[in-house]
């Protein structure tokens, strides 16, 4: 269960942010980052993402061996057993995708690990970045699981945000449908 999900557009601006908090966290100790902090976070991630590719060590540049890039498929589990034939927007069937996929993110930052949490970044071919912050407490969550989750969120984005005719590109996402669907998806992790 991720702590937070952010969506960053092509130019590095934060267009969506959602916290998913578990109930046990003590509220007094947590100093919630302000919205300004989050904007700074998003643009910092965006720029360091670009710097990371320039820091590729010479040893790898000389090696020129393509590194494995495939993300194995992790199916969605459904603990609450919601409606068995739930509609997945424009995706037919019971899951958004069923095969392992190529990770588009070859030399940008994929994850940042700290003491308390890990930040995972998934970038699409169009430059959109999906960021998930996951606490380190759970053992089952690793990079593969989060990449699958982020790809599913990308499918939701392509449906509920892109197909909304009143949504202007690169602007903050205000769609409630997207919000609700995202929360349901995350609950199923």
């Amino acid at each position: 269960m991720p702590q937070a999900v952010l969506v960053i557009n092509k130019s590095g601006g934060l267009i969506y942010h959602r916290d998913f908090e578990e109930v046990e966290v003590e509220v007094e100790d947590r100093n919630k980052p302000s919205s300004n902090d989050l904007l700074i976070l998003a643009s910092t991630l965006h720029s360091t993402f670009a710097i990371a590719s320039q820091l590729t060590p010479k040893a790898i540049q000389l090696q020129q061996q393509p590194l494995p890039n495939l993300v194995p498929y992790v199916p969605m589990i459904d603990p609450d057993n919601l409606v068995p034939r739930k509609k997945l927007g424009s995706f037919k069937g019971d899951d958004y995708f069923k095969e392992p996929f190529q990770n588009w993110n070859k030399s940008g930052i994929r994850s940042i690990k700290t003491d308390q949490f890990t930040v995972y970044i998934y970038q699409s071919l169009t430059g959109l970045k999906l960021v998930a912050m996951v606490s380190n407490r759970s053992d089952t969550i690793n990079e593969t699981v989060v990449n699958n989750l982020l790809r599913r969120i990308y499918c939701l984005y392509s449906d509920y945000v892109m197909k909304d005719p009143f949504y202007s590109l690169e602007m903050p996402i205000k769609s409630e449908l997207f919000d609700t669907k995202l929360r349901n998806l995350v609950k199923q992790l």
Binding site: T126, S158, M162
Partner: peptide, 13 residues
């Protein structure tokens, strides 16, 4: 907008 849908469905490199 459609390109995102295409990429989400196929994840082509």
């Amino acid at each position: 907008r459609l390109i995102e849908d295409f990429l989400a469905k196929t994840a082509l490199p």
